[in-house]
C-alpha cells in the first residue's frame, strides 16, 4: 500500500510547490502557441492545432486499445495466452491507414508552405544583422544618405538579472531601440549575421529565420494590428545568447512615415552636429541618445 501511495505523495509535493510558485501572480501559465498577428502566423497556428488534434486522437485510440489489453489479458484474471502472431490483412491495414492520415496532414502543410514562399512585393525593406549579442536594423533606401540604421540591445539592467532588484514585466524582453514597422504593409526582412549564426524570431509574425554570416535570408510579414511584439534569438550564439531579444513596434502607416522621416531628419541634424560616432560598418548610428 505504501508503495502505491508514494508516487501520489510526490505528486502532491509537486502541486504544492506549483501553488507556491504561482503565488507570485505572474502570467506564467502559457500553454500554447501564439496565434500571432500575420496571416501566415495564424495559418501556422491552425495547422499546429490540426496536427495536435490528429495526434491526440491517434494517441487516445492506440493507448486506449493498449490499456484495454493490459486490463483484459492479465494473468491474474486467468487469461490464457493465445499463439497467433501474424495477420497480413491487419498489418497492411495499419500501414495504409497511417499513410492516408499523413497525406491528410501533408496537403494543408504544403498549402501553407507555398503561401510562405509566395512573397508579396514589399515597399519597406529592413536589413536585420545579428551580432554577438545585439541586432542591427537598417532601413534600405534609394540613396545611402537616406538609410536609417541603428543597434537594438537588451535594456534589462544588470541588477535585475543579478536579482538585486525586482524584475520588471518585460524582463529580458526589452530593448533600447525597437524595430519600427508599419501595419498592413508588406515588409521584407533581409537577415544576415556578422559573426556567428543567430536566428531572428518573432513568434507573433510566424517568422524564424537563421542569420548566417556571409548569406542573406529573406522573410516577409504583413502585420495586421499595430502593437508591440517581442521575440528572442533562437540559435545558440555564445555567452549572451539569452540576452539579445527582439522588439518590434508596429505603427499605423502614417505614424511610421512620420517616425522614419524623423529618423532621417535626426540623422541629417546629427551629421551637422558632428556628434555621431561612426562604427565599423560606416553608417551605423544610434537614433536615441
Amino acid at each position: 500500500m505504501l508503495k502505491r501511495l508514494r508516487p501520489f505523495s510526490l505528486l502532491a509535493v509537486v502541486f504544492t510547490a506549483l501553488m507556491v510558485a504561482s503565488s507570485g501572480a505572474l502570467a506564467g501559465w502559457e500553454l500554447n502557441m501564439r496565434q500571432g498577428v500575420t496571416e501566415i502566423s495564424q495559418e501556422i497556428y491552425s495547422l499546429h492545432m490540426l496536427m495536435l488534434y490528429i495526434v491526440c486522437i491517434i494517441g487516445v485510440l492506440v493507448f486506449g486499445v493498449m490499456f484495454w489489453a493490459m486490463f483484459k489479458y492479465r494473468k491474474s484474471k486467468g487469461a490464457k495466452p493465445a499463439t497467433w502472431h501474424e495477420n497480413t490483412r491487419l498489418e497492411v491495414l495499419w500501414t495504409v491507414i497511417p499513410l492516408v492520415i499523413l497525406i491528410g496532414m501533408a496537403v494543408p502543410a504544403t498549402v501553407t508552405l507555398a503561401k510562405i514562399y509566395d512573397t508579396p512585393d514589399a515597399d519597406i525593406t529592413v536589413k536585420v544583422n545579428g551580432y554577438q549579442w545585439r541586432w542591427e536594423y537598417t532601413y534600405l533606401a534609394d540613396t545611402p544618405e537616406e538609410e536609417v540604421s541603428f543597434f537594438s540591445s537588451l535594456a534589462t539592467p544588470r541588477f535585475e538579472i543579478r536579482g538585486e532588484a525586482p524584475r520588471s514585466e518585460f524582463y529580458l524582453l526589452d530593448v533600447d531601440n525597437p524595430l519600427v514597422i508599419p501595419a498592413n504593409t508588406p515588409v521584407k526582412f533581409l537577415i544576415t549575421a556578422n559573426d556567428v549564426i543567430h536566428s531572428w524570431w518573432v513568434p507573433d509574425f510566424g517568422i524564424k529565420k537563421d542569420a548566417v554570416p556571409g548569406i542573406i535570408n529573406e522573410s516577409h510579414a504583413t502585420v495586421l494590428e499595430p502593437g508591440t511584439y517581442r521575440g528572442m534569438c533562437a540559435e545558440l550564439c555564445g555567452r549572451d545568447h539569452a540576452y539579445m531579444p527582439i522588439v518590434v513596434e508596429v505603427l499605423e502607416p502614417e505614424e511610421f512615415e512620420q517616425w522614419l522621416a524623423e529618423q532621417r531628419g535626426d540623422v541629417a541634424a546629427a551629421e551637422q552636429d558632428d556628434s555621431v560616432a561612426l562604427t565599423s560598418a560606416g553608417q551605423v548610428r544610434s537614433f536615441i541618445q
Partner: peptide
C-alpha cells in the same frame, strides 16, 4: 547592402 565582419577596422 554591405556588412563587415565583427571587429574589422574597415568601413564598407
Amino acid at each position: 547592402m554591405a556588412s563587415a565582419e565583427r571587429d574589422m577596422p574597415f568601413e564598407f
